[in-house]
Deep mutational scan, measured.
Amino acid sequence: HNLTITQGKLFFHYNPKLCLSEIHKMEEVSGTKGRQERNDIALKTNGDQASCENELLKFSYIRTSFDKILLRWEPYWPPDFRDLLGFMLFYKEAPYQNVTEFDGQDACGSNSWTVVDIDPPLRSNDPKSQNHPGWLMRGLKPWTQYAIFVKTLVTFSDERRTYGAKSDIIYVQTDATNPSVPLDPISVSNSSSQIILKWKPPSDPNGNITHYLVFWERQAEDSELFELDYCLKGLKLPSRTWSPPFESEDSQKHNQSEYEDSAGECCSCPKTDSQILKELEESSFRKTFEDYLHNVVFVPRKTSSGTGAEDPRPSRKRRSLGDVGNVTVAVPTVAAFPNTSSTSVPTSPEEHRPFEKVVNKESLVISGLRHFTGYRIELQACNQDTPEERCSVAAYVSARTMPEAKADDIVGPVTHEIFENNVVHLMWQEPKEPNGLIVLYEVSYRRYGDEELHLCVSRKHFALERGCRLRGLSPGNYSVRIRATSLAGNGSWTEPTYFYVTDYLDVPSNIA
Score class of each variant (00 low, 15 high):
residue 256 Q to R: 06
residue 470 L to Y: 01
residue 216 W to P: 05
residue 332 P to R: 07
residue 308 G to A: 12
residue 434 P to R: 02
residue 322 G to W: 13
residue 430 E to F: 08
residue 263 A to I: 12
residue 475 P to R: 07
residue 244 P to F: 08
residue 345 V to A: 07
residue 460 K to W: 14
residue 335 A to R: 13
residue 330 A to V: 10
residue 296 V to R: 07
residue 327 V to Q: 13
residue 221 E to R: 06
residue 311 D to E: 15
residue 374 G to V: 06
residue 442 E to F: 12
residue 404 E to R: 05
residue 403 P to T: 10
residue 497 T to G: 10
residue 256 Q to K: 11
residue 370 R to T: 00
residue 274 S to I: 02
residue 392 S to A: 02
residue 458 S to R: 07
residue 344 S to Y: 08
residue 290 E to A: 14
residue 318 R to G: 03
residue 388 E to K: 08
residue 338 P to Q: 12
residue 277 L to N: 14
residue 243 S to A: 12
residue 319 R to L: 06
residue 237 L to V: 07
residue 286 R to Q: 06
residue 407 A to M: 03
residue 488 A to N: 13
residue 444 S to A: 04
residue 223 S to L: 09
residue 380 Q to W: 09
residue 465 E to I: 08
residue 500 Y to C: 14
residue 415 T to W: 03
residue 420 E to L: 05
residue 282 E to S: 08
residue 504 Y to K: 13
residue 315 S to C: 10
residue 315 S to N: 11
residue 209 I to Q: 11
residue 488 A to D: 02
residue 398 S to K: 09
residue 403 P to V: 07
residue 354 P to I: 13
residue 480 V to C: 15
residue 481 R to S: 05
residue 373 T to R: 04
residue 366 I to T: 01
residue 320 S to T: 10
residue 360 N to W: 14
residue 410 I to M: 04
residue 220 A to Q: 14
residue 481 R to M: 09
residue 460 K to L: 07
residue 477 N to G: 10
residue 445 Y to I: 01
residue 275 Q to R: 08
residue 339 N to V: 11
residue 206 N to H: 10
residue 278 K to F: 08
residue 409 D to R: 12
residue 392 S to N: 01
residue 386 T to K: 06
residue 245 P to I: 14
residue 372 F to C: 10
residue 289 F to L: 09
residue 222 D to E: 06
residue 389 E to H: 12
residue 389 E to A: 06
residue 428 W to F: 04
residue 283 S to W: 03
residue 342 S to R: 14
residue 313 R to A: 12
residue 433 E to P: 02
residue 396 Y to K: 12
residue 241 T to P: 06
residue 332 P to A: 07
residue 306 G to K: 12
residue 502 T to N: 12
residue 468 C to A: 06
residue 482 I to M: 02
residue 402 M to N: 05
residue 377 I to F: 06
residue 297 V to E: 09
residue 438 I to Y: 02
residue 286 R to I: 04
residue 463 A to S: 09
residue 270 P to G: 01
residue 490 N to V: 06
residue 510 N to I: 13
residue 362 E to Q: 13
residue 229 D to Y: 14
residue 300 P to C: 09
residue 357 K to Q: 04
residue 256 Q to A: 15
residue 395 A to R: 05
residue 427 M to K: 15
residue 236 K to T: 06
residue 415 T to F: 07
residue 369 L to Y: 01
residue 300 P to F: 14
residue 497 T to R: 14
residue 467 G to D: 01
residue 302 K to C: 10
residue 273 D to Y: 09
residue 255 N to H: 05
residue 263 A to V: 12
residue 378 E to K: 08
residue 505 L to T: 09
residue 398 S to I: 10
residue 296 V to K: 14
residue 217 E to H: 14
residue 297 V to M: 09
residue 386 T to A: 08
residue 455 L to F: 11
residue 487 L to D: 08
residue 359 V to K: 12
residue 397 V to T: 03
residue 336 A to I: 08
residue 396 Y to E: 04
residue 406 K to E: 14
residue 271 K to Y: 06
residue 377 I to W: 04
residue 235 L to T: 04
residue 325 G to M: 13
residue 447 R to M: 03
residue 496 P to K: 13
residue 283 S to Q: 09
residue 252 Q to N: 03
residue 277 L to C: 02
residue 459 R to H: 15
residue 275 Q to M: 10
residue 207 G to T: 03
residue 265 E to L: 09
residue 448 Y to D: 15
